[in-house]
């Protein structure tokens, strides 16, 4: 009974006594969940269309954010001198998106094309290599210090009842939701979107009805680049553009396990669950074991989840044939 008190009842009592604090924790969790969802979304897009598990998605976000900051401050790549004219925000974002598209084309040319028909696990390892290349490249081009990023998203906070809410978080959630809607429309309603889904379903069948596989991959990696850009802007404005940004990619892995590798709604819901779960666990159960359980909570949840439902909440059932 005493043990039960320690690990369960005390926490529940806490929650019931100060519900507003609990909601604040949940809200904070939801917000970091949105960030996880954004990165996970990039994973899902690429996985659905090419069966490649893109480990470098988080580094994409870092690279996009670094490029954006570099352009906005007028930094000359590689020399780190501020010798170029500083670009306005909208132009910088547009140019960065352009850079991400070029990157997508290069990735398709240099990495994906020679590796067509390889094992998924080989592709996965090649994206680990890609992550290292991009990380080194981003740091060499734009310097490795922590940089502030301000794209003019309003900040400040207001109170709803007793709960404090950051305006920035609301904007972030709004932009993320907008992005998801745009992607959903793009996937469901446009010609390219239909082609993308066909490729996701069956590479060979798609090829045989004349869908240009290579262009599709470029499109998908560009879309993932866009998602990475948005994620990079969000994280970057919140906590500065720095190396740790690429670590959220690792956090997105359990999100995917939870939501399923092939499901866009799964990525969103999984991200929110992980975000809330780890914050609540950290605040209420962390003190029991000296804290910092945020670091592994998500992975262990994913591990337990894998044992019971390997395909995730919304993923397609995994069928294996000999």
């Amino acid at each position: 009974m005493e043990f039960l008190n320690l690990v369960l009842l005390d926490q529940i009592r806490d929650i019931l006594e100060f519900p507003s604090f609990f909601f604040e924790v949940v809200f904070g969790g939801l917000m970091s969940g949105v960030m996880y969802s954004l990165v996970a979304l990039g994973f899902v897009l690429i996985f659905k269309a090419s069966g490649v598990f893109n480990f470098s998605q988080g580094v994409f976000a870092l690279f996009a954010a670094l490029t954006l900051v570099g352009l906005m401050t007028g930094t000359m790549p590689f020399s780190l001198e501020k010798s170029l004219p500083a670009l306005p925000v909208w132009l910088a974002i547009a140019v960065t998106f352009g850079v991400m598209i070029v990157l997508a084309i290069l990735v398709e040319r240099i990495v994906l094309r020679p590796l067509v028909n390889q094992d998924q696990i080989i592709m996965f390892m090649s994206t680990i290599g890609l992550a290292f290349v991009l990380e080194g490249l981003g740091d060499t081009m734009w310097g490795s210090g922590v940089k502030a990023l301000d794209v003019g998203i309003p900040s400040g906070n207001f109170m709803v009842g007793e709960i404090q809410i950051q305006v920035f978080d609301l904007w972030a959630a709004g932009i993320a939701a907008f992005l998801v809607v745009v992607l959903a429309v793009f996937f469901q309603k446009t010609r390219t979107g239909r082609a993308l889904r066909a490729v996701a379903d069956d590479h060979q069948a798609a090829l045989s009805v004349g869908i240009p596989l290579r262009n599709i991959w470029v499109v998908v990696w560009s879309a993932a680049g866009l998602v990475a850009l948005v994620a990079g802007i969000m994280w970057g404005s919140k906590s500065g553009v720095q190396f740790s940004l690429s670590l959220i990619a690792l956090k997105a892995l359990p999100v995917l396990i939870l939501g399923g590798f092939t499901s866009v709604p799964g990525a969103i819901v999984g991200g929110l669950i992980i975000g809330v779960g780890e914050k609540v666990a950290e605040v209420y159960w962390g003190p029991l074991v000296n804290g910092a359980i945020e670091n592994w909570f998500a992975y262990v949840v994913a591990l337990v989840f894998l044992l019971f439902r390997p395909q995730g909440l919304f993923g397609d059932k995994i069928i294996e044939r000999v």
Binding site: G129, V133, G136, T140
Partner: peptide, 24 residues
């Protein structure tokens, strides 16, 4: 030294991709 560190990152990443493609 920092540049060398970054270059090392790029070099290893590149080597990985190269080996997976050319000589798995």
């Amino acid at each position: 030294a920092v540049t060398a560190k970054h270059f090392e990152f790029m070099f290893f990443g590149g080597m990985i991709i190269m080996f997976l493609i050319v000589e798995p």
